[in-house]
């Protein structure tokens, strides 16, 4: 299925030939007393060069687990039990500890959730950036300091701040410093896990603007994770919606916004009251987040789905292309054809 969409995209000229990141059939399980919990189930997606790819979903749907899997940061009880994660053609799952150490940060860097608190409080911002260069590039201290100053300038922080401790900076500044550290080695892929959740709207907008600018200037790819769909549509080129460990819809952001196919995407889109126009009653979703340990049969979304039909209870819908680059996993999607009847071009 993934090869099909890849082919389609190549035909569309949608993404460059070779993806920067290619996740195929990824499965991650958490071992629990009550049995294994499959947090990520058969997830496949590609991120092209210079592409911003968004991953949206409720808390607990597995989106952060994917981020940590790509960084190979998962620790017991979490375990990657299947699939592959290829970064520029290399399967990250085959790499040893030493190779991983070299790959992390140089090829793929990550801005963590509540990253502003991930700075070391007893080291100056400068020392923490210099650390990256001395550890990964064996750069002399002096040269590293110069590079650190350049990096801070890149994110609009005065180089005087190199001597500041994290607590002397505002939340927004700290977040920008963390982004600077992530970009220090010019990675081809930057993973951002809810980079602005702890920030105020005004600061959030500043940071998002900055990320967009840097991305356009430096051309790295981004895997952007959030539950705020409006934010995601503003930033990302293409996005995926995740529910209970599975991708339920993948499409270019504009398409997803204008023509969401999956009822869950629809519900997420409808969860934001508009800032203009008449006040209309919104419905949201019934308050019953999925139980990851015992997935319902059929479509995992059916217990909360307003449109569910009998088949939804028994037939698990595969993620299939609706148009060239718009995939959805729902039996009710108009024009949805079951796999065996599918005849593509």
């Amino acid at each position: 299925m993934e090869t099909l969409t890849e082919e389609d995209r190549a035909n569309n000229g949608h993404t460059a030939a070779a993806p920067v990141l290619s996740v195929k059939n990824l499965q991650v399980q958490y071992t629990a007393e009550s049995g294994n919990v499959t947090a990520v189930d058969d997830v496949s997606f590609d991120i092209g060069a210079g592409e911003v790819f968004g991953l949206a979903g409720e808390s607990g749907c597995g989106k952060s687990t994917i981020a940590n899997a790509v960084m190979r940061l998962l620790q017991t009880p979490a375990k990657i039990t299947g699939g592959s994660i290829e970064l520029a053609g290399r399967n990250l799952l085959d790499l040893g500890e030493e190779e991983l150490r070299r790959t992390r940060w140089r090829d793929v860097a990550m801005v963590f959730q509540s990253a502003m608190n991930s700075l070391n409080p007893v080291m100056t911002i400068g020392d923490q950036i210099v650390d990256v260069f001395t550890t990964h590039e064996r750069m002399p201290k002096k040269a590293a300091r110069e590079r650190a100053a350049e990096l801070l300038k890149l994110v609009d922080i005065s180089p005087d701040r190199l001597k500041s401790y994290p607590h002397q900076l505002s939340g927004g500044m700290r977040q920008r410093a963390v982004i600077a550290i992530a970009l220090a080695l010019k990675p081809s892929l930057l993973i951002m896990d809810e980079p602005t959740t702890a920030l105020d709207v005004v600061v959030q907008q500043e940071i998002m603007h900055q990320i967009k600018e840097l991305q356009q200037r430096l051309g790295f790819s981004i895997l952007f994770i959030t539950h705020d769909i409006s934010l995601m549509v503003e930033l990302s080129h293409r996005m995926a919606v995740m529910y209970a460990g599975k991708l339920v819809e993948v499409a270019p952001s504009k398409d997803m916004l204008e023509n969401p196919l999956h009822p869950y995407t629809n519900a997420l889109m409808g969860a934001f009251p508009p800032l203009s126009g008449p006040r209309v009653e919104l419905t949201g979703l019934p308050d019953a987040p999925p139980n990851m340990a015992h997935h319902p049969t059929g479509c995992r979304f059916h217990p909360r789905c307003p449109l569910a039909i009998d088949e939804c209870r028994t037939v698990p819908p595969p993620l299939l292309p609706k148009t060239a680059n718009h995939d959805a996993a729902c039996l009710l999607v108009p024009g949805y054809v079951l796999p065996r009847e599918r005849s593509r071009r």
Binding site: V202, Q205, H209, D228, L231, E234, L275
Partner: peptide, 27 residues
């Protein structure tokens, strides 16, 4: 919210992420 008067209200409103916004707003 249709006609914010105070500059701070305008600032707050322009910062709300809005997927349907057509042009990008510089902060």
């Amino acid at each position: 919210m249709a006609a914010p008067h105070h500059p701070y209200t305008q600032l707050l409103l322009s910062a709300v992420p809005d997927a349907r916004r057509t042009q990008t707003v510089r902060p």
